[in-house]
């Protein structure tokens, strides 16, 4: 029989190692979850292919189709998937348990944001390559790529904060329902499924996080307005999540 030697304790791993290992573990679980893959990868890819190949959802150029697909991927990953996984982890006591390990609550939140960023980076790479293969168009303007990157980062911040607010205050089933409903609202309302300028509420679309993200990634000049909208959503969401989030259900 194996003897377990606990006579000497163990120090925690370094903060960076803990966050990275938690993010890697969460990413592995996310990639093994069929529903999650459908939401975060299959739907954005499907939308991109349909728009480019059939013109479904209105005529769009390749850059416009790519922006819509990437925004959809960001929404699905940073908001819907994040809210659902955090809500059920909260219900099953996983958040409480991890908060008692060297990872701690802050480390767990950092890992959750990191895993969203990792998945979104992979999604974006796949969508860019697919767009290039299907249409022959490749992003080339460094300034616009940087602006798109900033928009994605801010959108991840904003959407993650609101996802945590919902997951940390409602029951898991209510989180599941609301996260899916909000997904549809932000997808249609923000002009991801249909171009915003063809929507009756087109003037308001840019005030939604998804509409602002689309504008930030599409605008050829520095897009202060959409970036500012994203910052407001991010700050308000973070303040509310910090105030109302509960680790235990």
């Amino acid at each position: 029989m194996v003897t377990l030697d606990l006579s000497q304790g163990s120090a925690p791993a370094t903060p960076g190692q803990r966050v990275w290992r938690q993010a890697r573990f969460d990413a592995g679980n996310a990639l093994r979850n069929g529903e999650n893959l459908l939401l975060t990868l299959v739907i954005p890819i499907g939308v991109l292919v349909l728009v480019l190949k059939t013109g479904l959802g209105g005529e769009r150029t390749a850059p416009q189709a790519l922006v819509a697909a990437v925004s959809l991927a960001v929404l699905a990953t940073a908001f819907t998937s994040q809210a659902i996984s955090t809500g059920f982890d909260r219900r099953y006591g996983v958040l409480r348990m991890l908060g008692l390990t060297p990872l701690g609550a802050r480390g767990l939140l950092a890992a959750r944001v990191l895993v969203s960023m990792m998945i979104i980076a992979v999604q974006t790479a796949i969508l860019v390559v697919l767009t290039g293969v299907l249409s022959g168009w490749w992003p080339g303007d460094p300034a616009q790529i940087a602006q798109a990157g900033a928009g994605i980062l801010l959108a991840v911040w904003a959407l993650t904060a609101w996802a945590l607010l919902i997951a940390g205050t409602l029951r898991a089933e209510a989180t599941l329902a609301l996260a899916n409903a909000v997904f549809l609202v932000l997808m249609f309302g923000g002009g991801l499924a249909i171009p915003a300028d063809s929507l009756p509420w087109s003037s308001m679309a840019g005030l939604l996080p998804t509409g602002a993200l689309v504008a930030a990634m599409s605008d050829p000049v520095l897009a202060w307005m959409p970036l500012g909208v994203l910052v407001v959503w991010a700050v308000v969401g973070s303040v509310l999540a910090g105030r109302f989030f509960r680790w235990e259900g």
């Binding site: 000497q8 163990s10 120090a11 925690p12 791993a13 370094t14 190692q17 803990r18 290992r21 938690q22 573990f25 390990t101 060297p102 990872l103």
Partner: peptide, 8 residues
């Protein structure tokens, strides 16, 4: 995974 959160 839980082991990976510790140094030793």
């Amino acid at each position: 995974h839980f082991a990976s959160l510790y140094a030793d």
